[in-house]
Design a protein around this nucleic acid. Structure first.
Length: 648
RNA sequence: GCUGCAGUAGCUCAGUGGUAGAGCACUCCCUUGGUAAGGGAGAGGUCGGAAGUUCAAUCCUUCUCUGCAGCACCA
């Protein structure tokens, strides 16, 4: 038998017979290591303790101390253990797939009865039994025919389908956890007892389609989370509670920002507080765009289907459009209109109105465009995914040669805005040509390069998303990460030569002939509604002073102070600070509590002493201390703080 | 849109086949209190909507609307 040489992390090498397994290697080092080993890393690949090694390699034996392999194995083995538990309790349930995901795993089952929360408890108990049984994990490579025969005998139709989907040149690997069998790539732990029995939890059940195919019947997916120990599980639970506290739907109610009701699903009733955030943000964006050379337009909401037919939306986007039938007074047939789902076709109409010269380009046309899209009911989510929203939309009409410079300019514009709004952690993705596309290869080459070069010129790295571009052109996506690590795609820039073509947009070139402009669709915030939702969650409701809908509450401690309270409020309002008086017959404790819960950034308490000295006792949200400041000073200070970042 | 779960006072929730209850919020009264809930009283709901079963429905059945979680969707 031939020999191979294995090199350990400390640099030492040893020779073994070819086909040696990591289990044997570990045993050759120390019995204790063989016992606590969970897997190996062989030439960078995650390797099962039972898989043979046939050539010289670098090898490291992993234990529970190695976080990455440990968590992957724990979660992956739990997926199998859960499926085994389910089939032990309900033998008729069919198994499908169960991958590791996020902080845990899921497994999809085909079962007539829905799983109930009580079922989850029962499954969890059974899983703990399996873990305590410390059943060995075994693996073998099987032939296709044997595997299919096996699954036919065991009546597991989904597994047969999965076997048939595995490429011919790939090994079919079968795993056993005790007597329970599953088709699986591996690797796995050495035995079920290596899973920490107190570090996991089944979280919820939800429907999911087999292999994501919505034309097929829905399966039941059970989700679980798992960690190395009880402490980490608790930490995860605490984090989830924190995230729930930031939920913009909850904070929106508590801060009286907006509400939604069933007569207008997916649309927002903005209350005064919420609308103040909205208009403050919009005013800021309007100033920024003017400085950056945009012109602002406004276009119709309800537009005849003829335009949507020309733009292509009628054929490609109709199911997402609100269609409106209108009885024309003097016409027998009904006119059919649609609420605009996008602003671009209307902007081309503005562009087309009057001859444009090459001297007009690039023409940056912005609109805070109210759009309506009939989003599927299941997609709606608070103010983040709605049916009526307003984009900070703009279309840059330009020549091919201007694409790169305009893109660079836009990235710098967007970076400034994200920084002003407190987001410093964001990335760019470049989506390239998809399989179904129009336009020549040369033009795709050119435009993809222009976008990439623009990113570099602006000083930003980007990640490529192969084949994710629109059918007419590539795009950049700007994704920001919030305070608790969630990612949001907000900004976008898409190159579109198609719509100008369809809607016959032209300009007169230097040569006196007509030419076709290119359109860059671009947005920074995406939609005001969604972005405000992100802002609320990012700040847990404690918005920066300039964006806070209620900035200052001036609260009396005794009623003798009421007159001076009004004076303080008036002085603040006179310099543009949003201030209100609280002269209610309540104790200062009560008022402080209420306004703190209402996320008011500054509370100014006024008692007899402050009246006497013409001062205020200031308290900042989140701080327990107070400070006494003269009226003039606090007015000057808050006036400055209330300025939007671009005006400071 | 699909699967599952849910809908009772402004909010958070309890509850029963015989036309409903708590805490907070609200209104009024007492209290003028120094930085996260002072005390008392009162008002407030055709129990998401429609139909059905029943002597009787908030409760059981069906349909429907809306929300929540996930899937699918996201030019």
């Amino acid at each position: 038998m031939s020999q191979i040489s294995l090199t350990f992390p400390d640099g030492n090498s040893r020779d073994y017979d070819a086909g040696v397994t990591p289990a044997e290697v570990a045993a050759s080092i120390a019995t204790s290591l063989a016992k606590k080993a969970i897997s190996a890393t062989v030439n960078g690949a995650h390797w099962d303790m039972q898989w043979p090694i046939n050539e010289d390699a670098r090898i490291a034996i992993n234990t529970m101390q190695d976080d990455e392999p440990a968590l992957e194995l724990i979660r992956h083995d739990l997926a199998h253990i859960m499926a085994r538990a389910v089939q032990e309790i309900w033998p008729d349930v069919k198994v499908t797939i169960g991958p590791v995901r996020d902080n845990g795993w899921f497994y999809d089952f085909d079962r007539q009865e829905p799983f109930t929360p009580e079922d989850l408890g029962q499954i969890e108990a059974k899983m703990k039994e399996i873990i305590n049984a410390r059943d060995a994990v075994k693996t073998e490579i099987w032939s296709r025919a044997d595997a299919i025969k096996y699954y036919e005998d065991n009546n597991e139709p989904y597994k047969i389908e999965l076997v048939n989907r595995i490429p011919e040149d790939e090994d079919l690997r079968m795993y056993w956890h005790g007597d329970w069998q599953d088709l699986c790539r591996g690797p796995h732990l050495q035995h079920t007892g290596q899973v920490p029995a107190d570090g996991f939890k089944l979280t919820h059940v939800a429907g999911a389609y087999f292999l994501g195919d919505s034309s097929r019947p829905m399966l039941q997916r059970i989700y679980g989370v798992a960690f190395k120990n009880r402490k980490d599980l608790k930490a995860w639970e605490t984090m989830m509670e924190e995230a729930a506290k930031r939920d913009h739907r909850k904070l929106g109610r508590e801060m009286d920002l907006f509400h939604m009701q069933e007569e207008a699903p997916g649309q927002i009733f903005w209350h005064p507080n919420g609308w103040k955030i909205y208009t403050t943000l919009q005013d800021y964006m309007r100033r920024m765009q003017e400085v950056d050379g945009y012109v602002e337009v406004n276009t119709p909401q309800v537009v005849d289907r003829k335009l949507w037919e020309k733009s292509g939306h009628w054929d490609n986007y109709q199911e997402n459009m609100f269609i409106v039938e209108v009885d024309e007074e003097h016409a027998r047939e009904k006119a059919i209109n649609a609420l605009k789902p996008m602003n671009c076709p209307c902007h081309v109409q503005v562009f087309n109105s009057g001859l444009k010269s090459y001297r007009d380009l690039p023409l940056r046309m912005a609109e805070f465009g109210s759009c309506a899209r009939y989003e599927p009911s299941g997609a709606l989510h608070g103010i983040m995914r709605v049916r009526g929203f307003t984009q900070d939309d703009a279309h840059i009409f330009c020549t091919d040669d201007q694409i790169e410079a305009e893109t660079k300019k836009f990235i710098e514009f967007l970076a400034k805005i994200y920084a002003d709004l407190g987001f410093h952690n964001w990335t760019i993705k470049l989506s390239t040509r998809p399989e179904k596309r129009i336009g020549s290869e040369e033009s795709w080459d050119r435009v993809e390069k222009a976008l990439g070069d623009a990113c570099n010129a602006a000083g930003y790295e980007y990640e490529i998303q192969e084949g994710e571009g629109a059918f007419y052109g590539p795009k950049l996506e700007f994704t920001l990460t919030d305070a608790i690590g969630r990612q949001w795609q907000c900004g976008t820039l898409q190159v579109d030569p198609n719509l100008p073509e369809r809607l016959s947009a032209t300009y007169i070139g230097a040569d006196g002939d007509k030419h076709r402009p290119v359109m860059l669709h671009r947005a920074v915030l995406g939609s005001f509604e969604r972005f405000i939702g992100i802002l609320i969650e990012e700040h847990a409701g404690k918005l920066p002073f300039w964006l806070a809908p209620r900035q200052v509450v001036v609260a009396s401690i005794v009623s003798e102070a009421d007159g001076y309270v009004d004076e303080v409020v008036a002085a603040l309002r006179a310099v543009g600070v949003r201030a209100e008086a609280d002269k209610r017959n309540e104790k200062i404790n009560y008022k402080v509590r209420e306004h703190s819960l209402g996320k008011v950034p500054v509370i100014l308490a006024i008692g007899a002493r402050e009246v006497e000295e013409r001062t205020v006792s200031a308290r900042r949200l989140g701080e327990n201390r107070t400070s006494t400041i003269s009226l003039d000073d606090i007015v000057a200070q808050l006036k400055d703080e209330a300025q939007a970042p671009d005006l400071k």
